[in-house]
Write a protein that binds this DNA or RNA. Structure first.
Lengths: 133, 133
DNA sequence: CTGCGGACGTTATAATATAACAACGAGCCG
DNA sequence: CGGCTCGTTGTTATATTATAACGTCCGCAG
């Protein structure tokens, strides 16, 4: 508890591990199924871990899929505007943070006196590789 | 059948009516409950209507809420990037389409050769009125 | 020791969404 | 007319996603 956002518990480690090894996003129940062999029995174990991991910026939720991914950067330092490009064919998720996008959006928010707490930006489509195929 | 995206059926009209009169977003089940008095009995009736209405741009889905709103513009003509600011206190949803945001995002998409089909932009927070209160 | 708080395990249930099939009706074409 | 096809509808059942509620365990401050 000295500096960081406190260490992860065993369950949180396992959930993060499952997400990190996955090549794409996973639903909470997919995580649960994978971790049953490690002793997981019920959804709350997964959801509780995810909640903490998201609070720490280690995991992101993809709203348009109801699924979760490990943060590509190890940990997002919570405040920035993060966006995702999601390939509907291969499931590839590209996490990015584009300055122009962030500026234009924060600009709108300021102009409209909106007090922002969380922003979701998700682009669905086909990645370069799949579009070519 | 002549020009438009074909007329709405009775169920579609009713669902659109419910959404239009609502002051905020509604879940599919909230719509169902409201339309039970008009004869609706089961979820597929609502979901089928919503599917068509969304295809026609008359209704939008808010991914971060699993809820739906009528398009503020009557009908979005599909192509623009539409964004939503959602007040977590009063439920107000502001639909907007900002040129700077659209440009910066389509720019990223082009640069990364991503073949976009659908984009979700949702800002959660407090609207000016609620933030002031 | 004792009480407190946080993580954990467990059961149950809520909320959201879709699959699958039967019935109906409008239009077409023999 | 009669039969066909096609799209909408109604209906039942079930899948998927998420949370409420409660009890246990354990480390630690007092």
């Amino acid at each position: 508890m000295t500096a960081e956002s406190s260490a992860l518990t065993k369950n949180q480690e396992m959930v993060l591990g499952a997400l990190s090894q996955a090549k794409g996003p996973m639903s909470a129940y997919a995580i649960l199924d994978e971790l049953r062999q490690e002793g997981f029995r019920a959804p709350p174990q997964v959801y509780r871990a995810l909640e903490k991991l998201m609070k720490n910026g280690l995991v992101h939720r993809l709203e348009s899929l109801n699924a979760f991914v490990a943060c590509s950067h190890g940990a997002c330092h919570s405040t920035g505007l993060v966006a995702f490009a999601i390939c509907d064919q291969c499931g590839l998720v590209s996490e990015f943070s584009d300055e122009a996008v962030t500026n234009s959006l924060t600009n709108w928010i300021a102009k409209n006196q909106f007090s922002n707490t969380k922003t979701t930006i998700e682009i669905r489509g086909d990645c370069a590789a799949c579009a070519a195929a």
